[in-house]
Every structure is written in structure tokens, then in C-alpha cells.
Design a protein around this nucleic acid. Structure first.
Lengths: 215, 215
DNA sequence: AATTTAATACCAAACGAATGTATGTATGTC
DNA sequence: GACATACATACATTCGTTTGGTATTAAATT
């Protein structure tokens, strides 16, 4: 097997294995050889043919993981919701997704995986924030949102939810997590974007409690 | 020279060199040998005698850099200031310090130095946030601050100023930086901690503009 | 349609840089 | 003088990356 007719399949396979291993054992904890070993027949040469470095695999993963499961595209064409309501929907969809992925299960600590942490922060800013910004602007137009800090809020939202609310970075009990989220709600309320309604707060509360009892 | 009478001096020297090189060339960009070369006569054995790994040097540096230049200890015994005023003083002292250090000069990009980024986030939470918390509590007692989110605000403050307001992570023009800081001011005002007064805002504004014209 | 050409998708092996270790030695302390 | 400390030196190991080759497919040419 010296050549594959459908190389995209190989690329996908590499990314899939890399994602699993990075989340299991971290970025530094995963060697190129580890990835090769789970590739089934392929060798290091295949990886370095499709990616010029280990870093590039990581970079590609950040984008892929987002686009694979883009909660924004799901509510894009919903005509029955205003901007604010769309934002709330994204929060719920996002929660439903991530509550079963590995990341939130703190399978790995972000602080001990600096490369993954940095990738997340970068992805949040480059890819996710613009989508939030779009929804905030939409909300401003339809009157559901009133703020002069659209850009700032759109940057801050993923930073707070993905980093500050990540217990692996900022350890917190269920009660503390709930207080932090309440803080975020108050803050966004104050800033003109009442994003976190009672339903979301309630879902989150039960989620925090469930996680705690699991450990 | 096989043995030093004052080994602390050696430890200090290692940390001093490591700090300079890490800030110049980044963590990954600096090899143990690089450090050795600037140590003057010492060898790798010396480093691995005092530190068990490169990571441990980095960890030690995070703490050292904070304690070397602790703005909180400077205002600790000021009896003429209430809690809020002390917080404002710390902000000013901190600005005066960092405005001439290398970090703010974006000599290195934090995103390309994930290990330094993670170290910063961790130091902020472990060391810096507790000091802020103490001042907020003091402010609550003396009536200069009214909030039920002391813990949350103390965690968020360093996160926002050191990460979100770091142009190397979140690129921004002078105007955008000013808007972000205005946002932080409004937000802390809303949450009962009017930390950023006109003077601080003005100092920061000039600082942003100065940096921009320098490039 | 047959043949050549060139680019692609890999494989196998080795390289090189950097972290870390093992062992030895001199110096200070009790 | 015994022993721990503070290093030096040389070596081992790990891991990302490079290099050179080969088979296969697609495109170009005849």
C-alpha cells in the first residue's frame, strides 16, 4: 500500500486519532509514534506528508473540533428567534454537546497541557468570538440587546465560559461554580446582554451538582 | 571551582539568567545549554543539582517574579487608605513597574509560549487573586466596596488585566485597548468595585497611545 | 489507446537536538 | 577524618523531523 486513492480519509484518520490521544494523554504526553501506532498500518512518513509538524496537527484540531460541532450554524436560519434568543439557544446546544465530551470531564488538566490551553484561547478568539459578535449585532438590530460593548462581550464570553469556568484551571466546588455562573449572569445582565436566563442557570446548576457527586 | 560556599547565589543566578532568556526567546526557544552558557563557568550539572527539571525552573520563576516585585506588600501598612484606595494604588504601582519590563513590550507572544502563558494564569490565581481578595474584603469592612462577589472579582481581575488586556494574546489598537479598559471599568463599577478611576484610565490611555506610536 | 511524465501518498531508516541521568570529584562542615 | 554538598563530565534516551526511496494514480503526450 504505497498510495491511497482518497488521501482525505488518511488526514481525517490522523486528526481523529490525534484528538483522542491529545485529550487522553495531553499534547506533550502524546508522541508522534503514539499516533502512528493507532493509525493501523500507516507510518510516520504519512503524518509528515500531510502535516509539516506536530504543532500543525494541533492547530488543525482546534479548528476542526469547532467546525465539526458548530452550534452557531445550527441556529443560523431560525427565523423565529431574535438575537438574544439565538444566543441562549447556542449556550444550551453547546452545553448539551460538551457535557458528554472528554474535555469538560477534566480528563486532562489544561494547566498541565499548556499547548492545548493556548490553542483553546486562540480558537475562542479567532473563531468563536466572531460568531457571538454576529449574534450580538443581530440582537442590537432587533432590539433584544442594548450594549455599546459588542466586541468586548463577544471576546469575553468564550474566555469566561471556557477558561474561567473550567474547573481544571480554576478549581471550584459545585456551589462555587454556581456562584461564578451567577456572577457571569449578573455581569452580562448589567452590560445589556441578559444571556443567562433562569432555565440555563438551572440546567447548569444540576450539571455542576451531578459532576460533583460523580467524583 | 567544584563547590560554592553560598549555593543560594547559584540558584539566584540560574533563575536570573533563565528569566532573561525565557522572556527574550521564550520557554521552548531556550535550551538548558543556553542557560548554562550564560552562567559563567557553571555546567549542566549545577542546574540539575538545584532543579530537577526545566519545568521546575519555570515554576520557580513564576513565584519569584511576583514576590520580587510585590505591589501588595508596598501598600500593606498604609493606614491612610481604605480598601478601595489601596486597590487603586496597587493598580498604579503595578503599571509603573510593568511599563518598563519586557513582558508588556510584547517581546514574546504568550500564545507562542504556552508554558509561560499557563504559568501566568496559574500564578495569577494562586498568588495574586488572594491578595486582591484580601483588599476587597477590607474594602467591604470599611464600606468603600459593596459586593457579594469578592472571590469572583478577585479571580477575574488578574485574568482580565494580564490575559484579556494583553495585546499579544488579544491584538488591539490603542483605541480598542481603551475601549476594553473602559469596559472593565464599567463592569467593575456595576459589580460594586469602582476600581478604575479617571486617573487610572487616563494614565492607561496615554500608555496605550505611547506604545502604538513606538511601533 | 498506449505510453510517457509528473506529481502524490506513502514507507523505512537515520539524524540531530535537547532533556535528563549516572558517575566521579573537589570542597566545605561537623 | 567522615560525610554531605555542590558541582563537573560523559553518556543515554527520547522524540521531532529529515531524507531518500518506491509504488500508485492522474495528467500529458503521442
Amino acid at each position: 500500500m504505497a498510495r491511497n486513492k482518497y488521501p482525505e480519509v488518511t488526514v481525517e484518520k490522523i486528526l481523529e486519532v490525534a484528538q483522542r490521544l491529545f485529550l487522553e494523554k495531553g499534547y506533550d504526553g502524546t508522541t508522534i509514534q503514539d499516533i502512528v501506532n493507532e493509525l493501523g498500518g500507516l507510518t510516520k512518513g504519512a503524518i509528515y506528508h500531510h502535516f509539516k509538524s506536530k504543532e500543525e496537527i494541533m492547530d488543525a484540531l482546534g479548528d476542526k473540533m469547532f467546525f465539526d460541532n458548530n452550534p452557531f450554524s445550527a441556529i443560523k436560519q431560525r427565523k423565529d428567534l431574535n438575537g438574544l434568543q439565538k444566543m441562549r439557544e447556542v449556550v444550551k446546544i453547546n452545553h448539551a454537546d460538551t457535557s458528554r465530551t472528554e474535555i469538560s470531564r477534566q480528563s486532562i488538566s489544561l494547566l498541565k497541557n499548556p499547548r492545548i490551553l493556548a490553542g483553546m484561547i486562540d480558537t475562542d478568539r479567532r473563531l468563536i468570538a466572531p460568531f457571538w459578535l454576529e449574534l450580538i449585532e443581530e440582537g442590537k438590530r432587533d432590539g433584544s440587546i442594548h450594549t455599546s460593548y459588542a466586541k468586548e462581550l463577544s471576546e469575553l464570553l468564550p474566555l469566561l465560559t471556557n477558561l474561567w469556568l473550567a474547573p481544571s484551571v480554576y478549581p471550584a466546588s459545585a456551589i462555587e461554580m454556581f456562584r461564578k455562573l451567577s456572577f457571569v449572569r449578573d455581569m452580562f445582565d448589567n452590560m445589556g446582554v441578559p444571556l443567562i436566563d433562569d432555565e440555563i442557570l438551572d440546567i447548569a446548576k444540576r450539571f455542576f451538582e451531578q459532576i460533583e457527586t460523580e467524583n
